[in-house]
């Protein structure tokens, strides 16, 4: 078997992402798992900066730089055209940021998911409008500093996975770059499923999160280990599987490494911890009620993925 680094890479170096960019890591891992028979859609965001200036590009698969809110219907248009052409071997992949997914592109994504168009949609979530210089989005977590919430974000992060589940689409999963094999496994699984697949990929942004660039990997592991960002998947909107049993570290371990949270009071940290605990309990309840068998096997360490 080829080692991971001997497999072809479809995000070329020389791109313009910031040093330590988690989003570039995420795109690279996703594209690698997708393979060459992929047509990708990107939208105005850091993905565009990574795309490069004419006539050079970092993308090693055919890619279109579409408009901000239409990653999903653009990919759906490609997918359906490919279907018409009988090219069932090529898959359409959409990349959009949290702004393009949670906010401006939410309706378009919903429309595609409702039609169950055959695409893989990857939301590269860096929790804010980072390409325009760090503004709040509906994915920005509670109390986080951004350029438009200088006093801290007063609202909680939107639960996009619940929104996706409400579409009863065949597959939605969370992933982070901190767990690269899990991410790639999910992409490979998504490739085998027909319909709208949604990957919510937490992609740390050292620039916007106000942290040293070398922390991107660590922070994404901590996001999972503190339950701030659990790894799970939802099949057909009803079958929930937690893929990884975290250590359950206190949220400070995640928050205090990031400058965007440095102003937090202990009450605010407690509030975040409480929210995280409640979300985790609810997630466990869902995973428990949808499959009691998984629960027992999951208690041993390692990963557990839903049926293929």
């Amino acid at each position: 078997m080829k080692s991971p680094e001997q497999q072809p890479n479809f995000l070329r170096p020389g791109h313009a992402a910031c040093a330590g960019c988690g989003l570039a890591v995420g795109m690279r891992l996703v594209l690698q798992a997708m393979g060459p028979k992929t047509i990708a859609v990107i939208v105005p965001s850091c993905e565009g900066s990574i795309g490069g200036v004419y006539p050079n590009t970092a993308y090693g698969v055919p890619t279109i730089h579409s408009a901000f809110e239409i990653a999903a219907p653009t990919a759906a248009g490609i997918a359906n055209a490919l279907k018409i052409q009988g090219r069932h071997d090529i898959q359409a992949l959409a990349f959009a940021g949290d702004g393009g997914t949670f906010d401006i592109g939410l309706a378009a994504l919903s429309g595609v998911a409702k039609n169950n168009d055959d695409i893989i949609y990857v939301c590269l979530d860096n929790e804010g409008y980072m390409n325009t210089g760090i503004q709040v989005s509906s994915s920005t977590p509670s109390f986080a500093w951004t350029g438009t919430t200088p006093g801290g974000n007063p609202r909680r992060k939107k639960n996009i996975m619940e929104i996706m589940a409400a579409h009863y689409n065949p597959y939605s999963a969370t992933a982070t770059i901190g767990f690269p094999q899990d991410l790639q496994q999910k992409i490979i699984k998504a490739k085998r499923i027909r319909g709208t697949k949604f990957i919510h990929l937490l992609s740390p942004c050292p620039t916007g999160w106000r942290m040293p660039p070398e922390l991107s990997a660590d922070i994404s592991v901590l996001a999972v280990e503190t339950n701030v960002f659990p790894l799970y998947e939802i099949e057909n909107g009803v079958r929930w599987t937690i893929n990884y049993e975290p250590r359950g570290l206190p949220v400070e371990a995640y928050l205090l490494k990031q400058g965007r949270f440095k102003h937090l009071t202990s009450e605010q940290i407690n509030q975040i911890q409480q929210d995280v605990n409640e979300e985790w309990a609810r997630l466990n309840q869902r995973a428990g009620s949808s499959s009691s068998k998984d629960r027992t096997s999951r208690s041993t360490k390692g990963f557990k993925h839903g049926k293929k």
Binding site: P36, K37, T38, I39, G48, G51, G52, V53, Y54, P55, T57, Y59, G60, V61, P62, T63, I64, H65, S66, I78, I90
Partner: peptide, 13 residues
């Protein structure tokens, strides 16, 4: 315009 044999990037800056 999307040729997997000759991948190109459409609508670049």
């Amino acid at each position: 315009r999307f040729d997997i044999e000759k991948p190109g990037f459409l609508v670049p800056v």
